[in-house]
Amino acid sequence: MKTGVLALQGSFYDHVQSLEFIDQDYVLIKDTSDLSHVNSLILPGGESTSMIKIQENNDLFSELKKLIESGIPTLGTCAGLILLAKDVIDGETSLGVLNTVVERNAYGRQNQSFEGLVNLLGNKEMYCFIRAPKILSYEDSVTPIATIDNEVVGVIENNIVGLSFHPELTNDKNYLDWLSNFIKDGVNVRSL
């Protein structure tokens, strides 16, 4: 079985590199026909408006939504988090499978983008926030898994993880260990 990496646009090759580090097979997803044999998913960083537009004529997102709702482990980073969120401020809701309210570009423009020390499941690491979305609120079914200065920047609900930042640009050992376990076991992996 393979991890599907949404490959419409964005940092999908960086996620592919993470998967290569942990010896996980993958398939690039550009069309609904790429979805067979996928049992985990990664939605990369990039521009969510662009990704939504690119897939609109081939129904890819409605198929993706079904697949995510079937319970397979799904990770979204930055734009990927925006695609997953149920409510998007200053943007469009697309998959709407993660019970959070997210605001696009809420940390500011590129000049305000930063590397920040994130506590991800108990481990601290510098990660990149690039015109990052902010998690404004989330429902009780959602659990925070990452914080920066006490602000929540990553959450999990069922088997769905959304992160404001880009662990795929860092690929530190803790992240890769977590990713490896998450892809195999999903929700059972709540800590490192």
Binding site: A7, Q9, S11, E47, C78
Partner: peptide, 10 residues
């Protein structure tokens, strides 16, 4: 560099 990475494929 990271912002350019996010523009890839676009």
């Amino acid at each position: 560099k990271g912002l350019a990475e996010m523009l890839k494929g676009g």
